[in-house]
């Protein structure tokens, strides 16, 4: 506590001491970063390494990232021995449709809630907020019931249609539209453009950052979506990647652990999201920051 009075007349010795402390802090900081960097990334390194190993090698040296011998037999068996290509196709189809649907429908609704004055708007927005709080896992049985009742169970429609809009996306778009100055739209409307035309050719182009964020979130969300496919389809021909992968590990492979194959399949399922993450990182980070900052 005597530091305060000492500070103005810092002696060289004291300055040395402080420099040493800074150095030590820095060293400790980097050590922590590297340690946790390993904790968070090494599992992926192990995954890649072991996907390229033989089964005995993977069992004997699980920690080593270096395959000995290196083999792509696991990947060959993924494509020859499982329905992987089919799951991949289904996942692509579902992801593309869901992403397009969400971006379009969510921005339409977000725009209306932000800008258009219609009766019931306040109530609708409150409903959107309420819906965001409904936890996905309690919807498993309900979703199955309604799909079953509507005759959509076990169909592509059942996989896609329920995911075509989401409350969180509507919310993101509404918040963004509210931040755009209204004057440009006014000019367009005065020039006689219809509401949809104004939205489509004037407002949407200005909303690019939000649209990119929403596209990425929808892509990531629907690519990784698992519980919904669990309760909407049963037919193996309609499995998406996560569903197929889950099926693979829960024993459809028959005997043996076959870790190189499973890790390889999981790796292939991770790659698209990983690429998008690396390319569009700042949108991911911003999304998570938004969540906290705006509470």
């Amino acid at each position: 506590m005597a530091v305060l009075t000492d500070r103005p007349a810092a002696t060289p010795a004291r300055r040395h001491q402080r420099a040493a402390r800074t150095l030590a802090t820095r060293f400790l900081g980097y050590a922590t970063l590297v340690f946790f960097g390993l904790v968070f990334l090494y599992p992926f390194v192990i995954q890649i390494g072991n996907a390229l190993k033989t089964e005995p090698d993977a069992a004997a040296n699980p920690l080593s990232p270096f395959p000995d011998p290196l083999t792509v037999a696991g990947f060959e068996r993924i494509f020859a021995g499982t329905n992987f290509p089919l799951w991949l196709g289904n996942s692509l189809l579902v992801t593309v449709l869901v992403t397009i649907g969400r971006v379009f429908f969510d921005s339409l609704a977000g725009y209306a809630l932000a800008r258009l004055r219609f009766r019931g708007r306040g109530g609708l927005f409150a409903a959107v907020i309420a819906v965001m709080a409904v936890p996905g896992v309690v919807l498993l049985i309900p979703k199955f019931l309604v799909l079953n009742q509507l005759g959509l169970y076990n169909s592509y429609a059942g996989l896609v249609v329920p995911l075509l809009a989401d409350a969180a996306g509507v919310f993101i778009m509404k918040q963004f539209f509210e931040s755009i100055p209204v004057s440009v739209e006014e000019a367009a409307r005065i020039d006689g453009a219809s509401i949809f035309r104004t939205f489509w050719s004037v407002v949407l182009p200005m909303a690019k950052p939000a649209l990119i964020t929403l596209t990425i979130l929808s892509f990531q969300g629907s690519w990784n979506e698992f519980p919904h496919s669990l309760v909407s389809v049963q037919d193996p021909d309609l499995f998406t990647l996560p569903r197929g992968l889950a099926d693979l590990v829960s024993g459809s492979l028959g005997k043996g652990t076959q870790y190189p194959l499973k890790l390889g399949a999981a790796l292939l399922a991770t790659i698209p999201v990983a690429i998008i993450f690396v390319v569009f990182q700042r949108y991911f980070v911003r999304d998570a920051n938004d969540g906290s900052d705006k509470g």
Partner: peptide, 15 residues
């Protein structure tokens, strides 16, 4: 540190 959060829960469970 953030990367694991964006990956598929199923794929990560396999790992």
């Amino acid at each position: 540190f953030y990367f694991p959060s964006v990956t598929s829960s199923v794929a990560i469970s396999v790992v």
